[in-house]
Structure formats: C-alpha cells, structure tokens
C-alpha cells in the first residue's frame, strides 16, 4: 500500500512538470496549429540562465538564504525566456505563417537544434549541478515520502494553470487569444491585432517554460543542454493526450502521463512475470498516446479539434 502511495506521489510530481511544459505547447498549438519543437529548448534555456544567476549570486554572497537565491535566478530566467520566445516567433515562425504546414514544423526542428548548440557553446557540454541550497524538509504520508520541493512543484503548477485559465477566460487578451484560435481572419476583422496576440502567446508560454525549467533542474539537481528535447516531446504527448488547445487538458494529460509512467515502470515487471520490465516505460507512454489518438483524436478534454489536425 505504501508502495502504491509512493508511486502515485512520484507520478503526480513528474506529471506536474509535464503539465507545466505542456501548457506552452497547447497554447501555441491552439492558436497556430504548430508543434513548437523549440519549446522544450526554451525550458532548458530557462534552467541554464537561472543556474548562471544562482552561481553568480552564491559566488558574491554565499550567506544569502537559498530560497531567495533561487527566486532571483527565476526572476532573471523568466524575462530571458520571454525575450527569446518573442525573437523566435518573430524571426523564424512569423514569415512562415502562410506557408504549407510542413515548413514551420521543419523550422521548429531547426530552431530546436540551434538553441541546443548555442547552449552547448555557452554553458559547455557538461551536466551542470544545481547547488543544494533549498530547504530539504521531508514528510511521511501513509508510509510514503514527500519533500517540500515536491509540494512546491505541485502547488506551483496548479497555481500557474489557474492563473493561465483566468487570463484566457477573463481578460481582454484572453478573449483575443480565443478569437485568434478560432479564426485569425475573423479575429483580425473584429479589430484584434493578431500578430500581437500570437507574440503574447509565445511569450506567456515561455514564462511558464522558464518556471518549469528551474523546477526541473532544482528537482533533479542538474541541467544540461540536451535536457529540453525529451521533456518537450513527452510534454507534447501530454498535451495531445489531454486535448490540445485546452488548458485543463494539458494539466490532465500531464498528470495522467506522469502517473502512467510511474505505475507502468513500477508494476509492469510483476504483472507480466518479468517478461516486460521498466525498460518499456517510454513505450507505454507512447502506446497510450496512440490509443487515445486512434479512439479519441481530440484528446480526453478536447472537443473542437477533431477534424482539424
């Protein structure tokens, strides 16, 4: 029983991270129908920038409280990622808005490669360690272990999602975003500045990505120029699972994927008598994705996208 509880906690934390990154994918896809492959790399850049700031601060004033140092890193990483995403959209994606579907997808792959290699040149080939400066409180719930950091990750990702939902549903910008997602042409006719809305979407997604990046590197204690790609891929799968273009769907998809991975890796070996083991962890994530797409292509919570993908 305590093992199952622990696996659910594991999945929940992992899923919260997927969900945060998935939000960025789902927002961009909802509006542009573009798989922004570079989104995972933006997450990585966020982690790297924050780590650089943290390193500098610790070098100058090692007596500062850890929480404050990490927070300062985050405060620099967020605008850095926002600026980066703004530039990517303007330079790489905007000229291709009317091009055939494949062109921006290829560009996105290109941007992803560029960001990875620039990061390698700037931050080196090494895995960068995240200094252990955060408080390490630990609790036991039903025999399972849970840490402060894990609680913060889950809480932060829920808050971010709620904030984003309010933004989309309750503000002027949000309404403009929804209108643009429905139809760029009609939205433009109604006086929406479509270019600004699309830029805003990228920039907001990047801010969330920066938060996710810092959380990932703090949680696992490392950052690397390669870390964004697989994270991005899984987060995209989570977004599709939940129903792309749908904020609650990204959250649900992320959490589900995290739990599926944790339970899959944890129990599949025992269930199949050792025939399949935890090496098939990624297979199950993708397998579930394929099943959902085949039987419910709009995702779990998606409604309106059934035919447009």
């Amino acid at each position: 029983m305590d093992i199952l509880t622990q696996q659910l906690i594991n999945g929940l934390v992992l899923g919260s991270i997927y969900a945060l990154v998935a939000l960025g994918y789902t927002m961009v896809y909802g509006i542009l129908e573009l798989i922004n492959f570079a989104h995972g790399e933006v997450t990585m850049i966020g982690a790297m920038v924050a780590l650089t700031v943290i390193g500098l601060l610790l070098g100058m004033a090692p007596e500062l409280p850890g929480l404050m140092v990490v927070f300062s890193g985050l405060l620099v990483a967020i605008p850095a990622c926002m600026a980066l995403a703004f530039a990517i959209e303007k330079v790489a994606y905007r000229p291709l808005r009317r091009a055939p579907r494949l062109a921006p997808l290829i560009t996105a792959i290109g941007v992803s490669i560029i960001l990875q290699n620039v990061a390698m040149l700037v931050w080196g080939r090494q895995y960068v360690a995240f200094p252990a400066i955060l408080p390490q409180g630990q609790y036991e719930v039903f025999g399972a272990h849970i840490t402060d950091l894990q609680l913060v990750i889950v809480a932060l990702s829920l808050t971010t999602m709620a904030g984003l939902w309010l933004l989309v549903e309750r503000t002027r910008l949000g309404r403009a975003m929804r209108a643009t997602a429905q139809s760029k042409e009609v939205a433009a006719l109604m006086g929406v500045n479509v270019d600004r809305v699309i830029s805003a979407t990228f920039v907001i997604g990047a801010a969330i990505a920066a938060i996710a990046g810092v959380m990932v590197s703090a949680y696992y204690g490392l950052a690397h120029y390669h870390m964004g790609f697989l994270l991005g891929l899984k987060a995209f799968a989570a977004a599709v699972l939940g129903g792309i273009g749908n904020i609650a769907g990204a959250m649900l998809g992320g959490l589900l994927l995290g739990i599926i991975e944790a339970l899959g890796a944890g129990y599949i070996g025992d269930l199949t008598g050792g025939f399949l083991g935890s090496h098939y962890q990624d297979v199950f994530a993708f397998f579930v994705l394929i099943l959902v797409l085949v039987f419910r292509p709009s995702g779990l919570l998606g409604e309106r996208v059934a035919n447009r993908a």
């Binding site: 093992i3 622990q6 696996q7 594991n10 999945g11 934390v13 992992l14 990932v216 696992y220 490392l222 390669h226 870390m227 697989l230 991975e261 944790a262 339970l263 899959g264 890796a265 944890g266 129990y267 070996g269 050792g274 083991g277 935890s278 090496h279 962890q281 990624d282």
Partner: peptide, 21 residues
C-alpha cells in the same frame, strides 16, 4: 529486482520505489 532506465533519464522514482518494496 532487475530494473532499467535509459541514458537520457533523470527520473528514477518509479523504479526506486519498486526496488524499495
């Protein structure tokens, strides 16, 4: 227990929990 991961992974909570059992 014989568990597996891959050379890009950073999360081992699932297999370690299983091992703990």
């Amino acid at each position: 227990a014989r568990e597996f991961t891959n050379d890009r992974a950073t999360d081992f909570a699932a297999i370690l929990t299983n091992i703990k059992g």
